[in-house]
Simulated assay, not measured.
Amino acid sequence: MSDINANGEMTRTGEAGFGDYVALLKPRVMSLVVFTALVGLLVAPVPMHPFLTFTCVLFIALGAGASGALNMWWDADIDRVMRRTRNRPIPAGLVEPGEALGLGLALSGIAVVMLALAANVAAGLLLAFTIFFYVVIYSMWLKRSTPQNIVIGGAAGAFPPMLGWVCATGSVSVEAVLMFMLIFMWTPPHFWALALFMNNDYKDAGVPMLTVTHGKRVTRNHILIYTIALVPFALAAGFTSIGGPIYLLVSAVLNAGFLYGAWKIWRRDEVQAEADHYATEKAVFKFSLLYLFLHFSAFLLEAALKSFGLGGW
Rank of each mutant, 00 (worst) to 15 (best):
D3H: 14
T227P: 09
L210Q: 01
V121K: 10
I78H: 11
R88N: 05
V231R: 15
T240C: 06
Y247A: 06
W263F: 13
A195E: 00
F18N: 09
A205Q: 06
L254E: 13
N7F: 14
V57A: 02
F51T: 12
A234G: 12
R144P: 10
K26E: 03
F184D: 07
N221C: 14
A283N: 12
L182M: 09
A123E: 00
E175L: 09
R28M: 09
A252I: 10
L62H: 05
G65E: 01
T85W: 02
F54A: 11
D201F: 12
E96F: 13
G153H: 00
D75F: 06
T53C: 13
N120F: 07
M72E: 02
T53P: 07
K216G: 02
T130R: 10
L105Y: 00
G40S: 04
G206N: 13
L248T: 07
M179V: 04
T187P: 04
L42G: 09
W263E: 10
F129Y: 15
T169Y: 03
Y291M: 13
A229V: 14
K286Y: 15
S251I: 13
P161A: 02
L292Q: 07
I225Q: 02
A100S: 01
E175G: 05
Y226V: 05
L310H: 10
V253L: 14
P147K: 00
L101P: 04
F59R: 03
I225V: 12
K286F: 15
S241P: 14
E96Q: 15
L24G: 04
R86H: 13
F239Y: 09
A273N: 04
A6M: 08
F129H: 13
Y260W: 06
F35M: 11
S297F: 09
L101M: 06
T130G: 06
T213M: 06
I152C: 03
L194W: 01
M10P: 05
M198T: 12
F285Y: 07
G215L: 01
G98T: 08
S251A: 15
A237I: 11
R88G: 02
S297V: 10
L52N: 15
N149P: 12
T211C: 06
T11C: 09
T130H: 06
F191V: 00
A61T: 03
L94M: 06
F293M: 15
R80H: 14
A236R: 01
N5E: 07
I78E: 10
F258M: 14
G40C: 06
D75V: 12
C56M: 07
C56T: 01
L115M: 15
V43N: 00
A155D: 01
T13S: 02
A61S: 08
F293T: 15
K282R: 14
R86Y: 11
S139V: 03
G63C: 04
L32D: 05
F239W: 03
A195Q: 01
G17C: 02
